[in-house]
Amino acid sequence: MKVQVNNQEMELSAQSSIQQLSETMELPQAGVAIAVNNKMVPRTQWHQFFLQENDQVVIIKAACGG
């Protein structure tokens, strides 16, 4: 299945959760927020939130500095 991750097409297996996407992308355990189709998904729901074909995913990483 194809989804858009930060405006880049990505191929995932069917029934992929946000947690699986996070692990595939080797995202850090903290300092990351994910929105699907313009709605934030709490980290506590990542394992049960399954992506659908053509979903728009935005990954935001916290950055230090000013």
Rank of each mutant, 00 (worst) to 15 (best):
V3C: 07
Q4Y: 15
Q4H: 13
Q4L: 14
V5D: 01
V5H: 02
N6Y: 05
N6H: 13
N6G: 06
N7D: 15
N7E: 15
Q8K: 15
E9F: 12
M10D: 00
M10L: 14
E11K: 08
L12M: 05
L12P: 01
L12S: 02
L12T: 04
S13I: 10
A14E: 14
Q15A: 11
S16G: 09
S17M: 07
S17E: 08
I18F: 05
I18N: 01
Q19K: 13
Q19S: 10
L21M: 06
L21G: 01
S22H: 14
E23N: 12
E23I: 08
E23G: 03
T24A: 09
M25V: 09
M25T: 12
M25D: 11
M25L: 15
E26K: 15
E26W: 10
L27F: 02
L27A: 04
L27T: 04
Q29M: 10
Q29C: 09
Q29V: 11
Q29H: 09
G31C: 10
G31L: 08
V32K: 00
V32W: 00
V32Q: 00
A33H: 06
A33V: 10
I34E: 03
I34G: 03
A35H: 06
V36C: 07
V36I: 09
V36T: 04
K39H: 13
K39I: 09
M40N: 11
V41C: 04
V41S: 05
P42N: 00
P42Q: 01
P42F: 00
P42H: 00
R43D: 09
T44C: 10
T44Q: 14
Q45Y: 06
W46C: 01
W46G: 01
W46A: 05
W46H: 05
H47M: 12
H47G: 12
H47F: 08
H47W: 05
H47Q: 15
F49R: 04
F50I: 14
L51C: 04
L51M: 07
L51Y: 02
L51G: 03
Q52G: 01
E53D: 08
N54Y: 02
D55W: 02
Q56H: 15
V57P: 00
I59D: 00
I59Q: 01
I60H: 05
I60M: 12
K61R: 14
A62W: 05
A62N: 02
A63T: 14
C64E: 10
C64G: 10
C64D: 04
G65E: 00
G65P: 00
G66H: 09
